[in-house]
Design a protein around this nucleic acid. Structure first.
Length: 423
RNA sequence: GGAGAGGUGACCGAGUGGCCGAAGGUGUAGCAUUGGAAAUGCUAUGUACCCCCUGGGUACCGAGGGUUCGAAUCCCUCCCUCUCCGCCA
């Protein structure tokens, strides 16, 4: 959520930022007008309430001295009715303002490229070298079937399409990767491991910005009004919701969770294999930092995600997303994409974002600065990294002419020394 | 799921209709005392919002409703915590 004062005082600046996202300004103007309406109403009701409070006190005093108060009481009662109706008006204005505010995205960082879609994203760098093959590289589906790493056909029977079922060495590989990443983040990068709930309430979803916009993309438990998490970002970032943080910043947390996404509106896209699925595993990194440091912390966050890929010897590239391609809550975002030779394309496996104080305002998460003043923290998160696509990239980048897959050395300790995935 | 108890400021805890934004204590900060410190004493110490902003006002005692001239206090609904019972990986 943006600061309403910022909209009040620097309207043009905010408007310019939102236009860079390709957003029209209706909501923003609505918020500005509702804010004025709200303040007018507050002033009016506060004056009325002041009057009522003092009159009520007088009644108390009169009663004590034994005087008749029926007449005064009647007049104050009328006043109460007036207050009640003004209060309704005020609450409607407040709710409308809140609704508008919750649907206004973050203002993009000034330095990121301007553009409306991914074509304006800037490639920051390519790391490593693409593997060269003296044979036609297979895609992950063929490899997975040849080596019996998953069984997608039966998963359809169990649940439905796009729910992955990893099997045997495939399941083990995935589990090894989770261990490998968590171990790296906790021992080398200074993160504290968390294993949070995979189901959260509506307040949490609103806190990190998934609601109200993304409701259609998430799984909802109607009876309990709970949501299946689309990313560990939600439970982990909400850890400090409604708190003044009781520990020194920065705070680094990492968590493995499954992620559930309905992927509404993407029917038919990438439906084969495990490229785009309704349930996937991910190791996530979340940071709570002081405002002055958040952009430096973002660079470090990307390095932590890169470290995972470098350790596996994979070829990847980093993109700086343009103003129209960053997520709702982000001010700046880097994507990391792995090379998938079988698909002859890049696969997004990580998204590292600085939300500045946008999430913290929704979360009401603050800290005490050096002067003891309470301020909103800055939050960041990044995938470290997302799983099925990491598996795809390993299968496709490490495949051998004989049909086997060479397991990256860093992973072998997690697989009882296994060196190859073979049929 | 059933029965009971409870949710008050950073924390503990008093408060059952007006004198309560809330006693007392702890903690924290400042001052005094001291060679310095401990101990002691004094003082200060919630948040958000609004306005004609050196000041004034409103709201907040788990959340939301209701009763009343007036609610932390009475009534209703919900949420959460604890104890016991039941069920259960």
């Amino acid at each position: 959520m943006l600061d309403i004062k910022r909209i009040r005082e620097k309207f043009d600046e905010v408007a310019e930022g939102l236009q860079r996202r390709g957003m029209n300004l209706d909501l923003l103007e609505q918020a500005r007008d509702l804010d004025i309406k709200r303040r007018t109403l507050v002033t009016e009701t506060d004056a009325l309430k002041m009057e009522r409070n003092s009159r009520s006190k007088e009644i108390g005093a009169l009663k004590k001295s034994g005087q008749d108060t029926t007449e005064v009481q009647a007049s104050v009662r009328a006043m109460g009715e007036q207050i009640a109706s003004k209060d309704v008006e005020l609450r409607e204005a407040e709710e409308a303002l809140q609704t508008a505010m919750l649907s206004i995205p973050n203002v993009p960082c000034k330095t990121i490229p301007t553009g409306l879609d991914e074509s304006a994203n800037r490639e920051v760098c390519k790391v490593g070298t693409p593997p060269e093959f003296d044979f036609e590289p297979k895609d992950h589906i063929e490899i997975g079937e040849d080596l019996s790493l998953f069984d997608l056909a039966r998963a359809v029977k169990i649940t439905g399409s796009a729910f992955p079922l990893m099997l045997g060495k495939g399941a083990k590989l995935q589990r090894a990767l989770i261990q490998y990443m968590l171990d790296m983040h906790t021992t080398k990068h200074g993160y504290t491991e968390m294993l949070p709930p995979f189901i959260v309430n509506t307040d949490s979803m609103r806190g990190t910005g998934q609601l109200p916009k993304m409701a259609e993309d998430m799984y909802h438990c109607d009876v309990d009004d709970f949501w299946l998490i689309p990313t560990a970002e939600v439970p982990v970032t909400n850890y400090f919701r409604n708190e003044i943080m009781d520990r020194p910043l920065p705070v680094y947390l990492t968590a493995y969770t499954p992620c559930f996404r309905r992927e509404a509106g993407s029917a038919g896209k990438d439906t084969r294999g495990i490229l785009r699925v309704h349930q996937f595993d991910k190791v996530e990194m979340v940071k709570f930092v002081e405002p002055e440091t958040s952009y430096d912390e973002l660079e470090l966050l990307v390095k932590d995600a890169e470290d995972v890929l470098n350790g596996l010897g994979l070829h990847y590239r980093i993109l700086e997303l343009c103003s129209g391609d960053i997520s709702f809550a982000a001010a700046k975002c880097y994507d990391i994409e792995l090379w998938a030779p079988g698909h002859n394309g890049w696969l997004e496996v990580s998204s590292c974002s600085n939300f500045e104080d946008f999430q913290a305002r929704r979360l009401n998460c603050r800290y005490k600065d050096a002067d003891g003043k309470k301020q909103f923290v800055h939050t960041l998160n990044g995938s470290g990294v997302a799983l099925p696509r990491l598996v795809i990239a390993i299968l496709e980048q490490c495949q051998q002419a004989d049909g086997s897959v060479l397991i990256p050395e860093a992973l072998r300790p997690y697989m009882q020394g296994m060196e190859k995935l073979e049929a």
